[in-house]
């Protein structure tokens, strides 16, 4: 049992067996976080660097808690307070970090492919914590873990992903993962936010919310990035909400036992109404809890391979 790779760069190049191994391992780590002493000595002496070129609270905190519960040391580098503002290049920053001998580098960057580049420059394990509009593999893994925990399977599930598909790394990683695991994925959103040829990834494409979520076992609502308002992708937040906000009425198109997910941070009243976000079908906070377990599993599996 071993994750036979140095890095976790995306879901696209993971096998079904590797995804199952990560999810099974993550299940075992749930217990550690519910004990009185939430710490095991497993990764004593391991150093994890969180290198974040984009703002993040949830993902960075989650990685930090995961590392600390395994007794690893963590260092957080937010580039707004680092040498990056002094003009240091990405590769120079990476080489300097490498020279300090950490074991794992967790990278978030606005440029797609930057973790792949980093993994070629440094000998440390690299975990992609989100690269541009490309992939966010740990988010997809925690989403799949939550679905599997609640529905006891992934194969045969119908999952609807609704929102700004074109700019969403969460959508892309989930599409890769869920289709690999045998789930059916449908995506929904306005045509301006739907990438061309997305159906080539093996998903159904819909432009109306009700069509996308019809008979869905799971609905994943994506965050509308408010800063994109200026880019003419939609006329106004109010108009977007009128057609794409998941509420008590339109949710009726989905299955009665539908689960509601959201990768956060939520815009209440824009893509999801408060009564749905806080409602009985919402597993949004379970996603956050499982995120720590998934990241513990990855740190454990990637560290175990070294000698």
């Amino acid at each position: 049992m071993k994750l036979a790779r140095k890095d976790l760069l995306g879901i696209q190049d993971l096998s079904v067996e590797e995804i199952n191994l990560i999810l099974d391992t993550a299940d075992s780590f749930i217990d550690v976080s519910t004990r009185e002493i939430k710490k095991v000595p497993t990764l004593r002496g391991v150093t994890v660097v969180n290198l974040f070129y984009e703002p993040s609270t949830r993902t960075r905190t989650s990685f930090e808690i995961a590392a600390k519960r395994l007794s690893a040391d963590t260092i957080n580098i937010a580039t707004s307070t680092s040498s990056v503002v002094k003009g240091e290049t990405f590769v120079d920053t990476a080489r300097n970090l490498e020279a300090m001998n950490p074991d794992i580098i967790v990278l978030r960057h606005s440029a797609a492919g930057s973790p792949h580049m980093l993994s070629k420059v440094v000998r440390q394990s690299v975990i992609n914590a989100g690269d541009g509009a490309h992939e966010h593999p740990t988010q997809a893994l925690l989403d799949m873990m939550t679905m599997r925990e609640k529905k006891k399977r992934l194969a045969g599930l119908k999952v609807a992903i609704v929102g700004d598909i074109a700019h969403s790394r969460v959508a892309r990683s989930n599409i890769y993962g869920l289709t690999k695991m045998g789930a059916t994925v449908s995506v929904g959103g306005p045509i301006t936010m739907m990438p061309r040829c997305i159906e080539r990834l093996g998903v159904e494409v819909h432009y109306k919310l009700e069509d996308a979520i019809r008979d869905a076992d799971i609905i994943m609502m994506l965050r509308i990035q408010l800063e994109r308002q200026e880019t003419n992708l939609f006329p106004s937040l109010r108009e977007y909400a009128r057609y794409y906000c998941l509420n008590r009425k339109n949710i009726a198109a989905a299955r009665d036992d539908v689960l509601i997910m959201h990768p956060g941070p939520m815009n209440r009243g824009v893509e999801i109404s408060p009564e749905i976000a806080d409602g009985p079908y919402s597993v949004i906070l379970e996603q956050v809890t499982n995120g720590v377990a998934v990241r513990m599993a990855l740190l454990y599996l990637l560290s175990g391979g070294k000698s």
């Binding site: 049992m1 391992t25 780590f29 175990g304 070294k306 000698s307």
Partner: peptide, 10 residues
């Protein structure tokens, strides 16, 4: 854990 070369099943 770090020397055996494999992460064991938990």
């Amino acid at each position: 854990i770090m020397t055996s070369g494999k992460a064991r099943e938990i």
